[in-house]
Amino acid sequence: MDAIILQILNGLDKGSAYALIALGLTLIFGTLGVVNFAHGALFMIGAFCAVTLQRLFTISYETIDETKTDFLGNPAKVQTPYVESWFGPDVGQAVIDWSVPLAILFAIPIMALVGFAMERGLIKHFYRRPHADQILVTFGLAIVLQELIKHYYGANPIQTPAPDAFRGSFDFGVLLGFDPNHIIYPYWRMIYFAFAAIIVGAVFAFLRFTTFGMVVRAGMADRETVGLLGINIDKRFTIMFALAAVVAGLAGVMYAPINSPNYHMGMDFLVLSFVVVVVGGMGSLPGAVLAGFVLGILESFASMNEIKQIIPGIDQIIIYLVAIIILLTRPRGLMGRRGVMEE
């Protein structure tokens, strides 16, 4: 029982990342009709916003410490971050320590700008082109973006830790009446799940309860009619693209302490997130979120040794297996609109 609870918990944080990326993908597909293969790269850029802010906070000035030597035997250069010098060691260290949460504020304008530039600079030229063209150009863009990141940040993963206060683990086992140390779950993963829930809730509320959201939903249902009413739907859809980029970016920022960011992390999530979108139903926002969590949990269960002993290698194919079954039995996905992907 404790193993099952643990895998559900594991699936929730994995599912959180899938859900947030798939939510952005669905927003873009639903509004602009574009299949955006560069969406994983936006997730990766978000994570590198956290890396960048951490580096900005640790920009240092050099002093020479004659009592120490460097690897060549010369007097050692000691680096002192400017934030420590400006605000004192304690406050400076706290600012560096909290760089990931603070990167949320840093990432929002950057991701919105990246999303805006992507849509206006490239994507808009492919609105009326076949999906295959859209996939090719966005996939190419994703490769360009990841190579740019690799050029400036290197190919190795970069450690971006959570604040000290959240580095420990919570013993769920004791809470649920099990032995201590049997169901342990890191604080930061709990925060990630809560953060994902808040973001998903905020996006839904924005679309549901604001006039802007209402117009966007109307545009998703019937773009032409909304246009005929004199509403500039293209402008709103551009904003939605930027919003989707921000959602993916924030998912990346908060994911940075879970696995050290590297230039390839967007590609690692991209294909799985597309499967999530297809399983949830192309264009269905609730479907994307539901499928994200369901597939995340299924993937976790498939990694259990007991399951792998029965079906070796199931952990690597479970998501695709589910996608095949869903597409065969319900081509429009779990919550897709009737007619979508069924013609």
Binding site: L6, N10, K14, D268
Partner: peptide
């Protein structure tokens, strides 16, 4: 573990059992 794996949590939690 698959070479392409990035999140090892589901491989690590069974150790707790």
């Amino acid at each position: 573990t698959p070479l392409a794996a990035t999140d090892f949590s589901s491989y690590i939690t069974p150790i707790l059992q």
